[in-house]
């Protein structure tokens, strides 16, 4: 199938745009949080910490889903050049998760900041509150993926790299579950993420089944 829209090759400036635009929400939200908290601005409304923390978390989910969307998009449209951006999108998703976690630790929970909060409190949060446990687990699982995202590591790990990086499916599921559990009652927003994730994973299941069928029905020597 010929590539859709004649985009056989990457449009000029695409890589630069991706490089500049993807970190933009993070830069803006972090700047807005600092401004609102310590310099009297009012970009994020009444509770800048929660607003920033949630926004960073949602952006990390969006980027994670974007990462997972690349392969289906490539197959459907024929835009094969998308493939080389998958890793950087994944790394950006990791950076957003790290900022989300940092915001939670320092600005929300205020570990190391508040005299009323100690390691014991954070430990209790991590062990006794399932949505935090799940969020932290997703972050920890992302660490090996981030560390092995360099070209040298890909070469070194060979086939094992692909196997290791299948973790991303589990991470995405954990991320969406974390979002579901974090909201008080209104699950409409996490539901949107869950549906998109289900579509992306469902497509993969279908493809896998199809290729197995094809292999099975391939003519065999008599």
């Amino acid at each position: 199938m010929p590539p859709l829209g004649g985009l056989a090759r990457e449009p000029r400036g695409f890589a630069t745009a991706l490089l500049l635009l993807t970190p933009l929400p993070a830069v803006l939200y972090v700047a807005a949080m600092i401004g609102d908290l310590f310099y009297g601005s009012r970009f994020l409304g009444t509770d800048p910490v929660k607003a920033g923390e949630h926004a960073l978390g949602e952006w990390s989910l969006r980027l994670l889903l974007a990462t997972l969307a690349i392969t289906p998009l490539r197959r459907i449209t024929g835009w094969n050049w998308l493939a080389k951006h998958r890793r950087s999108l994944g790394l950006y998703a990791f950076a957003y998760v790290a900022l989300h976690l940092l915001t939670w630790t320092l600005l929300d929970v205020q570990l190391l900041i508040s005299e009323f909060v100690g390691w014991a409190d954070v430990q209790k949060d991590l062990l006794k509150r399932p949505y935090i446990t799940i969020g932290m687990l997703a972050f920890l699982l992302m660490l090996p993926l981030a560390i092995t995202s360099t070209k040298a590591m890909i070469a070194r790990l060979g086939k094992r790299w692909r196997v290791l990086h299948r973790l991303v499916y589990g991470i995405a599921v954990l991320g969406v579950v974390h979002f579901f559990m974090a909201v008080k009652k209104d699950i409409r927003e996490p539901l949107v993420y869950a549906v998109v994730l289900a579509l992306l994973l469902g497509w993969r299941v279908r493809e896998a089944r199809r290729s197995r069928l094809q292999r099975a029905s391939a003519p065999t020597p008599a």
Binding site: L37, F38, T46, D47, V49, L107, D108, S114, F116, V117, D121, K124, D125, R129, Y131, I132, M181, A182
Partner: peptide, 13 residues
């Protein structure tokens, strides 16, 4: 899902 030992006062950090 969270501790009630402390609180964040709206308008202060």
């Amino acid at each position: 899902r969270w501790s009630q030992a402390t609180e964040r006062r709206i308008g202060s950090f």
